[in-house]
Design a protein around this nucleic acid. Structure first.
Length: 605
RNA sequence: GCCGACGUAGCUCAAUCGGCAGAGCAACCGCCUUGUAAGUGGUAGGUUAUGGGUUCGAUUCCCAUCGUCGGCUCCA
């Protein structure tokens, strides 16, 4: 709920209205129809569902007599090319509901869509619409589909060498897990073969950056079957990075008016009843443990504990704003199929904070937390940051005017902060609107990190008060915020963002000393000791290996500095500096290297 | 949880039709003493995820469980 587990967002930002008008959209949508034609030729008994263009491609859902194999995909793709090359026309025709039902009499999913169109509340993709739409069909090469379009006029507009089928996956009809599971074929289509190639390269590049792969290669973390799914083991190198992040985090928080609190991992059932978790969040909580006849629950969130710290004494407006921060470890039940490396886990540590203040202080407090968040994110090298303002959802608590005021406060703060933002209408939590911050990486992928959320319910539920200037009790305002999100997820994002080549200040090993021959090892150890005195994290590769092998290994470990040491360096009290980008900077004095490294660390590059 | 694919040495992967479980890298022990991305020889490493079943015989076929991957759903 409040600091809800943050999503892995890999969607590229786009303007969907422009996209739907583009020729690329028509190409993809038409490719989807051609795919459906090919599938129906192969499986005449297939039932077709829906097949829209999506970002970077298209899909189509089918109800098929048997599971598809990769060989099927190849043959379907081949057939698609030949259909495209036969230059079929796409013909649009408006039909009555009666006619449509006749055409699709043996296609139950289409009939359901037609019924929806007739009632006028959903379109042919099953999305809700206001107006009663016209029913149109598109046909090409003997294949007819219920479709709003638009499409290409002729398949000649599609380059057969710029399409590719990617994968087959299960998908529920209408996205409803109670309805039949269909087979979805994903494909991609582009204007030119080069663009397809570029897209496939991007997929490959993303695979190389996969934090699960790098986590193993760089020995950062693991999960063990014997321990349990979604439970992370931080190895020494990953732990080192986490420690550096936490130290930085603590210093920055301390310098910005936060106070640190520590709270237990379990709490009585009554606490979770009061907070509303047992009412609203139970399916994400683990079974209780019985302690002397009392039920205790593992915490899925930290807020009730922070609130009790607030309640531990009478609060005055003079204390405000109160900022409680904690790296709080929480446990949430996640269904087995959704677990994903560090991004979606069952136990994780949130860099959580709760702010309490007077209503009139709220605008300033939001400004503060926004600016603070941006400052921290930028410190980690994230500069392409996009904000999302999520407003009142249909199901919500709190008076509408409070919502409007809170939304306005958030929006004004975004404007004052001068950050570009998008509005996610109805995307807020049920208890209050929120601002999310997402960062974009080199591949154009967006990752959600920070979430800043208003809360209308907990201060009421726990009956929080403060004594105002008037000597009367008042209800404080409260915001939840997770800045990095969770340590696990943040680490995963860091790994993918930097492809494992962390900035020097975060690198678990900053420099490796590479003695060329055994006779240089002693000097290398002396240099290492000197560097350690300057707080640099270094190791000596004293294996009886060739220099080339040591360099190769250091490269693969993405260590920022390689310091090669041979006769010349030992003689001149130098090191030969090589960077992980392959640049060989030649011999420099130890002092010069320390200067360079400490400056890089200071600049956080 | 659902659909599909998958699980063999620390890692990456072989193993014909059901017939002695193998390689490279890493590790360990040597030799080489190296100048900017892999020097070389040897040794060791396995209850083939787990538990059942079929079979003279199972890494291989079947069932269940656990886990991983791609999606869906979920992430009030």
């Amino acid at each position: 709920m409040h600091l809800s587990l943050i999503l892995l967002e890999v969607k590229m930002a786009e303007n969907s209205e422009q996209y739907e008008d583009s020729s690329l959209y028509r190409i993809r949508h038409s490719a989807s129809h051609i795919m459906a034609q090919a599938v129906l030729e192969k499986f005449p008994e297939a039932k077709i569902a829906i097949g829209p263009a999506i970002e970077d491609g298209f899909y189509y859902d089918f109800d098929l007599p048997r599971p598809l194999t990769s060989e099927d995909l190849e043959s379907i793709e081949k057939r698609m090319r030949s259909i495209i090359q036969s230059k079929v026309d796409f013909v649009r025709k408006e039909v009555s509901a009666e006619e449509a039902k006749k055409i699709f009499h043996d296609q139950p999913y289409k009939l359901e869509l037609i019924a929806g169109l007739e009632e006028g509340n959903v379109d042919e993709d099953g999305n809700p619409v206001d107006e009663k739409p016209e029913i149109s069909i598109y046909s090409q090469g003997g294949f007819v589909d219920l479709c709003r379009g638009p499409h290409v006029a002729n398949s000649a507009e599609i380059n057969p060498q710029a399409i590719k089928l990617l994968s087959v996956a299960g998908a529920y009809w209408r996205g409803d897990e109670k309805r039949p599971m269909l087979q979805r074929i994903y494909g991609t289509a582009w204007n030119k073969p080069d663009e397809l190639k570029e897209y496939l390269w991007r997929i490959e590049e993303a695979k190389k950056r996969d934090h699960r792969k790098l986590g193993q290669e760089l020995d950062l973390f693991s999960v063990a079957d014997e321990i349990g799914a979604g439970l992370i083991l931080w190895h020494p190198k990953g732990g080192k990075i986490r420690k550096i992040i936490e130290n930085f985090w603590s210093e920055e928080h301390e310098a910005n008016g936060y106070e640190f609190v520590y709270t237990p991992h379990i709490g009585k059932s009554k606490l979770w009843e009061t907070s509303g978790h047992l009412g609203y969040y139970k399916e994400n909580m683990y079974s209780p443990v019985d302690i002397e006849g009392q039920q205790y629950f593992l915490k899925p969130m930290n807020c009730p504990f922070h609130i009790h710290i607030y309640k531990s004494s009478l609060r005055s407006y003079r204390e405000f704003p109160l900022r409680y921060a904690e790296e709080g470890t929480v446990y949430r039940f996640e269904r087995s199929g959704v677990l994903h490396g560090l991004m979606r886990v069952r136990g994780f540590t949130q860099d959580d904070a709760h702010h309490f203040c007077r209503p009139d202080q709220m605008p300033e407090e939001i400004d503060f937390v926004l600016n603070f968040s941006l400052h921290i994110l930028r410190s980690f090298g994230f500069h392409d940051i996009q904000a999302y303002l999520s407003t009142k959802p249909e199901k919500s608590v709190g008076e509408p005017e409070r919502w409007l005021a809170a939304e306005a406060a958030l929006e004004e703060s975004l404007k004052r902060t001068n950050i570009t933002y998008k509005v996610d209408q109805g995307g807020g939590a049920f208890y209050g609107p929120k601002i999310d911050l997402k960062v974009k990486d080199a591949l154009g992928r967006e990752w959600q990190l920070t979430t800043i959320q208003f809360d209308f319910t907990l201060p009421d539920r726990f009956d929080l008060t403060f004594i105002g200037e008037d000597g009367q009790p008042h209800r404080p305002y409260m915001i939840h915020r997770a800045l990095l999100g969770s340590m696990e997820r943040f680490f995963g994002v860091l790994i993918e963002y930097y492809a494992g080549a962390f900035p020097v200040w975060l690198s678990p090993i900053q420099a490796v000393l590479i003695p060329i021959a055994d006779r240089h090892v002693n000097y290398a150890k002396e240099v290492a000791a000197t560097l350690r005195q300057s707080k640099l994290r270094v190791m000596v590769d004293d294996r009886s290996e060739r220099m080339n092998a040591k360099i190769r290994d250091a490269q693969k470990q993405k260590i920022p500095y390689m310091l090669v040491i041979g006769d010349k360096e030992a003689e001149n009290h130098q090191v030969a500096l090589r960077l992980r980008n392959g640049e060989n900077l030649g011999p420099i004095s130890i002092a010069a290297f320390i200067d360079r490294a400490t400056e890089d660390i200071k600049q956080k590059i």
